[in-house]
């Protein structure tokens, strides 16, 4: 009898303590988190691992280092100096970015171009008060642009007359890649970062499931539970470009910050948002801008040529949602969408 009594009480106690253990999360690894302000935006790095704290610390230092190096607004930074002097000997980081930018410029038939800087200045997107410039000023500035006028030889970059460069289209993507390397060097195998909305994840979540990345709906940019869709992924960068990110209105018309270097005006190609999914942050960042400038037809053709390198999600002006075949199974949305295959 005593035995049964003891057993029953033990069961009750087990139930009492066990029932609540679900609310207490088990933690195998320690988590580290940093939020910082750099590259004119807010960034977050979250990582799990024994050395997560040191890893995140080093990642933050790298972001600040790249920010100083690449900022067009910092006259003493490397890019600032090149723009002021018209030429410069490149450091390791800027050399790599220049080489990749020129390759992207060629592959995308000029849709991605770092010489867009004078146009960004003319439109005021580098400052706080953007406005529509005079038409002849736009025409003159367009003449200055073009990566074909850049000379890159023996580690020295020389700009054409009146030119300026801006790595803004790939800087955050490159920073993401650098952070992934740093985290891995510290033995981190699970991490997720957001560099002003550019997302990159390392491995899977600590519970073994895929990361759920919610893509902002241009119709509801502030609502955190209404998305264009959710992509489930691992070891990928997910980057979106859209006209809704930075824009101004003048005379009832909206002007966004993604420039078509050939016309000198914001790119109007029938797309509202382009999301690129790639294992490389730099590529995802650069292609999100390039594919936005290309428009639907050219972007889809470009994907067909490079389908092993990236996947994409397009939202058109007429509200069609298109997803390329490589991520067809990993994407979900409350909207109807079409999967593009060969």
């Amino acid at each position: 009898m005593k035995k049964i009594r003891g057993l029953m009480i033990l069961t009750a106690i087990l139930f009492l303590t066990g029932g609540c253990s679900g609310a207490i999360q088990s933690e195998d690894d320690s988590e580290a988190y940093r939020e910082l302000f750099a590259m004119d935006t807010v960034m977050s790095v979250r990582a799990w691992g024994d050395q997560a704290e040191a890893a995140v610390e080093e990642a933050a230092a790298e972001i600040h280092h790249l920010d100083t190096l690449l900022s067009v607004g910092n006259p003493s930074g490397e890019v600032g100096q090149i723009n002021r002097n018209g030429s410069g000997t490149l450091s390791e980081d800027v050399r790599l970015l220049t080489e990749r930018s020129l390759a992207l410029w060629e592959e995308t038939d000029g849709a991605f171009d770092i010489t867009v800087y004078p146009l960004m200045q003319l439109w005021g997107f580098t400052g706080d008060h953007p406005a529509v410039p005079q038409e002849d000023a736009i025409r003159e500035t367009v003449q200055l642009c073009g990566s074909d006028k850049l000379i890159f030889q023996d580690g020295i970059l020389t700009l054409g007359k009146g030119q300026g460069i801006d790595f803004g289209g790939i800087a955050k993507g490159y920073a993401g890649d650098r952070i992934m390397t740093i985290l891995q060097q510290h033995g981190v195998d699970s991490a997720v970062i957001s560099l002003g909305g550019n997302v990159q994840c390392l491995g899977r979540k600590t519970d073994g499931s895929l990361w759920r990345c919610g893509i902002t709906d241009p119709d509801h940019p502030q609502e955190s539970d209404r998305f264009l869709g959710i992509i489930q992924t691992e070891d990928r960068a997910v980057v979106t470009s859209g006209g809704y990110e930075r824009f101004f209105q003048e005379d009832g018309k909206t002007y966004h910050h993604i420039m078509n270097i050939r016309t000198g005006y914001p790119a109007e190609t029938g797309l509202r948002s382009v999301t690129i999914i790639s294992s490389e942050g730099l590529l995802a960042d650069g292609l999100s801008t390039a594919c936005f400038v290309m428009g639907e037809t050219d972007a889809v053709a470009f994907w067909r040529q490079h389908r092993s390198a990236f996947d994409m999600i397009l939202l058109t002006e007429d509200d069609r949602l298109l997803v390329t075949a490589g991520i067809g199974n990993d994407f979900s949305s409350e909207r109807p969408f079409t999967v593009i295959s060969d």
Binding site: V192, G197, C201, W211, R212, C213, T216, D225, I231
Partner: peptide, 10 residues
């Protein structure tokens, strides 16, 4: 909420 995500792509 029913539609939770880990991170927001903007």
């Amino acid at each position: 909420s029913g539609n939770e995500i880990d991170i927001n792509v903007k």
